[in-house]
Design a protein around this nucleic acid. Structure first.
Lengths: 202, 202, 202, 202
DNA sequence: TTCTAATCGAGACGGTACGTCCCGTCTTGCC
DNA sequence: GGCAAGACGGGACGTACCGTCTCGATTAGAA
């Protein structure tokens, strides 16, 4: 087995082990076993479990989401929600991320890294989405990007990762509309009708 | 030490251990050590780590939140947000809950229990909050309670548990307004006009 | 398995491992495996490989040879040679003893212990054998016990442990006669004449 | 470094390692390190540790002891004992030989080789010594050379290699006398008086 | 009050994993 | 082509805990 293949096998085995037992119970020995590789080969590359896991997460998070600019706030939201739904739908993600978040609550180094690669990334995406909407005149000048991101990311994360249910398309559409409205956009004219109808215009 | 004292000492030690190392790394041995009790004494009472922890969490979750009816949607939201902020601010909660959620992703029994005692509880609270608002005419008839709960709980949970920052009062106020508006409530009279311009009332 | 059985199983496994691979390559893990016992169980009893091995050897050496007094020097020698031949004939002994002797050459602690339990023991046996012969008048007063022991033990050890051949009874008989004569005993009257006939007295 | 220098450096490093840790714990890696040479360079020359070590020992043993004929049995013994004392006094010999003997107890190939180069050599030396004495009339015709060698070599080996003490000259003198007498030589007239006086002839 | 039964602590048990070390083999470029 | 450098799988190290189990000592309540 060549050098690169070994590294790849370790990374792959790590993902599976992480999903299977979580960070807390992750054992290097099990990763090595699953990868068909010696412990030495792992310790030669990473000095600790933490370093190993964080590298993986950073790599996974770093390779994401080009810009998504559909021309309208609602279009951006629809696309974003679709992407996030898909990303969190992957079983590895839905198992590993909560685990790391839990671990972050008691390990500052993990917390720090996740802040940078996960949450900051979402801030960036959400922030630029809001900024474009403001520029277009869809959202009022002075809209608090931070609060907006909470509003955009929070509900979907809650539904997907905590309540652990897959939302229907109709739910996503309604969520788009509700969030857009909540943030102050003028209502999309005929779009939604039933789920969360805005107050009827005069 | 009497029977009851031992049981109490175990429960107390358990909470501290859970907060310190999380469910994944929780060890009966450490609990026994912290409680000043033999391992035997614990295993005689609970057959597994899981049984022990779930009992505690269920007990903690069961003794909560009476009804909160302030008479207005915005009042209810403000109060709810304050309570949730306080609850999640407690270090035990902010460390134990993410951990159990992570564990739930791979243990159906935990997932099941949490569904019942945590999420269902929030559904119930959020649902009755929405129902009252609909009854009062603050929200349109047919408002999807489930989606509404996501919108109410999600952003705050995200900010508190994931982004792990303590929101200012102004942030909470703005969140109340945004969520209310998003859900379709008529705007609170003069407060802010620009951020979330309400749809014109009928 | 009870406490004592475990200890016994370890000791037995140790002997076999020592014989199989020698002290240098002896591994606690292999001993545990062979004994059907956990490593912990061994480390709980002995703190190191050395301590373990020495204890065994001391125990084995300590439980030996009551007095052997046949009434004549030649009788004592004959009996002693028979006992030693039997003891060194045991495969464990013939494999373990050279190994420990070799190890003793570079480990003072082993050397010290072997001096006490093995060589001193032989000195004692050989010494008392010589003393009795002197008392009986079979050997001259002033016979150097130390040198005598070398003469008694050396040839047989050489033949058994180094040349690794099993001596015939005739060889042992001749050796008795030769040693007795060499030490200064009057020749046994008619016994053997051919193999190593004593020098005819002047 | 040239080809030959590397080979020589390996051989030299091997001797030092053998003395330091013995055959059992000898590692090619350590030899390479001490020789300032790569492991590859060693494995290219010898296929195993055993092959490497035996080659060295055979070479060392092969270049020895011309004939020693002093004209008398006692002279030959005195000279032989002096040579052996000197040879076994060399730290390399006193450490490597017991080690190889121990290893031979469980490795037939080593045993075979040692039989040839070490013990056979001693048999040859001892045998010719006895033969000359018989020819001279100092020892009876029919003296068993094998047994005689045991008697000659055994005591000294025991004292030097096992009891690990350096014998005084007086001890060696007495040993010569005792062995000679034991083998059946007429007593040397006035020589020994105290240490192991032969029994007065009837 | 005595006996019985439950419960206690203490701690040994087989296990698993740790992270380190070093083995002998094998691969890869440099000289 | 031989060399050093060093990564490879393997395996043992001695330690730390795990959850299970057995053991007497202590304690309470029932006889």
């Amino acid at each position: 087995m060549l050098r690169g293949e070994i590294t790849r096998a370790i990374r792959s085995a790590l993902m599976q082990e992480l999903a299977a037992v979580g960070y807390g119970r992750l054992s290097i020995e099990a990763v090595a076993r699953r990868a068909g590789v010696s412990k030495t080969a792992i310790y030669r590359r990473w000095s600790s479990k933490l370093e190993l896991v964080l590298e993986i997460v950073v790599a996974a998070a770093g390779s994401k989401l080009p810009t998504l600019d559909t021309g309208t706030l609602r279009g951006d939201l629809t696309l974003l929600f679709k992407l996030v739904t898909h990303a969190l739908g992957h079983p590895l993600a839905s198992q590993i991320i909560p685990d790391l978040l839990a671990e972050a609550a008691r390990n500052p180094e993990i917390d720090e890294t996740l802040q940078v690669v996960l949450r900051a990334k979402q801030q960036e995406i959400g922030g630029s989405l809001v900024a474009r909407a403001v520029q277009r005149g869809e959202l009022p000048v002075g809209t608090d990007a931070g609060a907006a991101v909470d509003l955009i990311v929070g509900p979907l994360y809650w539904r997907l990762a905590i309540a652990r249910s897959t939302p229907a398309q109709a739910y996503l559409d309604a969520l788009v509309e509700t969030v857009a409205t909540g943030l102050g956009a003028a209502p999309a004219v005929p779009r939604q009708r039933d789920v969360t109808p805005p107050a009827a215009p005069a």
